[in-house]
């Protein structure tokens, strides 16, 4: 049984539909990239998968084995987070809340988990640094480490490379790819960067006006909508 299965779901706010008839499945070990134009409903889809929003129509089936507490979510960063007074350790540790029941404070197990994930993402040397003093790429690693504390099976990443410079962006994509291949973590990622998505992911879900596509990355690059978007940076008028 797939980790997540969506059957003919429609998304929107307050009665206004922004995306219709979306069907796809995420299998164990998969790496799915959700691409499409601004406002196509990518972030809303991720929130729907998490159960934070309800679909207008259709149903989302999440494997009971996965359930709420083993999904890790990396939301888009908000402006005020960038100058939040907190240390890297405090932020990573906050991802462990999903793993403690009713007790009010963190125990040794949670602290070890945070330590382990900081090591995994190579930010251990930054653990006592203040979050607002880090570079964009480092901040994103901190948030990813926090997400890993919350879940080991499935990651839902909403534009993890937004606002990063090209080097940090590349770095981020490789980090996610390593987590998928070496740690066997299933990844669902929203991305603007269609070229990188085709290069790194296994499946592509394209949202947009009447051009829904779901299939492997290879199929996508051969499809009509795929070729159009992949070549969108070639400007017809500039070509000789």
């Amino acid at each position: 049984m797939p980790y997540i299965e969506c059957r003919d779901i429609s998304l929107g706010y307050g009665g206004k539909v922004i995306a219709e008839d979306i069907s796809f499945a995420v299998e164990e070990g998969d790496y799915l990239c959700i691409v499409g134009e601004n406002g196509a409903g990518k972030s809303t889809l991720v929130k729907t998968l998490l159960g934070l929003e309800n679909p207008i129509k259709g149903e989302v089936v999440v494997d009971s084995y996965i359930s709420k507490n083993s999904i890790g979510y990396l939301p888009q960063q908000t402006d005020f987070q960038r100058d939040f007074p907190a240390t890297v350790r405090e932020i990573v540790l906050s991802g462990c809340i999903a793993r403690y029941g009713k007790q009010p404070f963190f125990g040794k197990r949670q602290r070890n988990l945070a330590e382990e994930n900081m090591k995994k993402l190579g930010i251990e040397n930054l653990k006592n640094k203040c979050y607002r003093e880090l570079s964009g790429g480092q901040q994103q690693r901190v948030l990813l480490a926090r997400t890993l504390c919350a879940a080991k099976k499935l990651l839902l990443l909403d534009e993890p490379a937004a606002g990063l410079d090209p080097v940090a962006t590349n770095d981020m994509y490789h980090l996610v790819m390593d987590l998928n291949r070496q740690e066997d973590i299933t990844v669902v990622m929203v991305s603007h960067d269609i070229k990188a998505a085709v290069r790194h992911s296994k499946h592509i879900l394209h949202l947009g006006d009447g051009e829904m596509f779901f299939g492997t990355a290879e199929e996508y690059s051969k499809s009509k909508v795929g070729t159009r978007f992949l070549n969108s940076d070639k400007c017809g008028r500039c070509e000789e």
Binding site: K47, L50, L52, K68, N69, I71, G72, Y73, L74, P75, T78, Q81, F84, A86, E90, I91, S94, G95, I97, A98, P104, F105, F106, R146, T147, A150, L156
Partner: peptide, 22 residues
């Protein structure tokens, strides 16, 4: 004091906190 860790989580990132079932 009792809600300290949850308060931190929600203040820093409400969407993430919601995804953890808070």
């Amino acid at each position: 004091v009792v809600l300290y860790n949850r308060i931190f989580s929600i203040t820093f990132d409400e969407n993430f906190a919601r995804s953890m079932g808070i």
